[in-house]
Design a protein around this nucleic acid. Structure first.
Lengths: 187, 187
DNA sequence: ACAACCATGTAAGTAGTTACATGATTTA
DNA sequence: TAAATCATGTAACTACTTACATGGTTGT
């Protein structure tokens, strides 16, 4: 499980409250990890129980903002976890299942869905490219080891989105083509 | 949820038993969907209850192989589902969290993990390329609409693996570099 | 007859999602 | 003072994973 460790990393970069974490996950941190505020609150409480972080409530009672900080035990845990082996999560792309269903059945409206996906990925791509221009390509951008690693992660996001943009376009071409005669190639 | 629809598609392509489905998911069907045999059995039972498929037991009692076939209601369900909208699942790449932790803490062994991942993706890539050569590039390969769609899906798998192979190599380069002085670029 | 494997299944646990509840602060 | 929004949380549910159980078939 990686959510607590994603939270530890984010809190080390900048201590903040639960909702701020959720907002940061929506934005930059979240190219490759996602979490809702419900998950985040539950996990923060668990991590505080483990002694990995400590949270100071600003106001009294419920509704007050808390600021979480990483404790020494949290740093140790993160460091140990970061060196562990873990196989990549198996792919689960429902769009591919839909396409396979179209291949078998025909007559579905996957093309509409491909168009929608194309637009989504184009939007994400533009967003990531804007972040790259602002944070890593501008004059005076930091160029230390940490910045280079963060840039590398962002570049992975950009490349993935670019891949899906190109692939969706190719898929739409294929589906738009006049159905070819079901011939076999000659040897 | 897409697992039942992935199963319907697979059963339409070729009716078979639960364990055969699991084996097929390990192989070609599974570039973009994964399921264990436990999940598959549970889902098959549920789908039979819904009247989407019917399973004939070859032998009597427990331990006998069953052959499942898709019923008319199953076809209808699959067709309706294939036309539905669905946003892509959010990314969850623990490796990126590890890299971010390395950027913040330093001193982890992520490089080892990157090497391992590089080898994994190279292996998958070679496997998919072999499938492509065998099923879609050989003389006499079918070239109808269904085959083109299946090829398109395989190409997505190849492109994704290629992306990660290249990206892991770049990441390893970066981590191997002598730490640069923490300078800022001049404007 | 025993081992190895094939095939189907049960049970318990984890991670993530969706829907809702509640108090505090800001804005009209 | 009412509405909107910020911030924290609970509860129920779904999908997936891991570990184990059980019977049947094949090979030596």
């Amino acid at each position: 499980m990686s959510l607590p460790h994603a939270l530890l990393t984010a809190l080390l970069e900048h201590p903040c409250s639960g909702l701020e974490l959720a907002a940061r996950f929506e934005r930059s941190i979240g190219y490759f990890w996602h979490a809702t505020h419900q998950q985040i609150y539950r996990e923060l409480a668990r991590m505080e129980g483990e002694g990995w972080i400590s949270g100071e409530a600003a106001g009294e009672g419920r509704g007050g903002k808390k600021r979480y900080q990483v404790l020494a035990a949290g740093r140790r845990e993160l460091k140990a976890w970061a060196s562990r082996e873990q196989d990549p999560a198996p792919h689960r792309e429902a769009l591919m299942v839909r396409l396979r269903a179209e291949a078998v059945l025909g007559g579905t409206r996957v093309a509409d869905e491909l168009l929608r996906r194309l637009a989504l990925h184009q939007g994400q791509l533009a967003h990531y490219q804007a972040l790259e221009a602002r944070d890593f390509l501008a004059d005076g951008s930091p160029d230390d080891r940490a910045a280079r690693i963060q840039h590398l992660i962002l570049k992975a996001g950009i490349q993935v989105e670019q891949l899906w943009v190109d692939w969706c376009a190719e898929a739409l071409d294929l589906l738009a083509e006049p159905a070819p005669a079901a011939t076999k190639r000659r040897r």
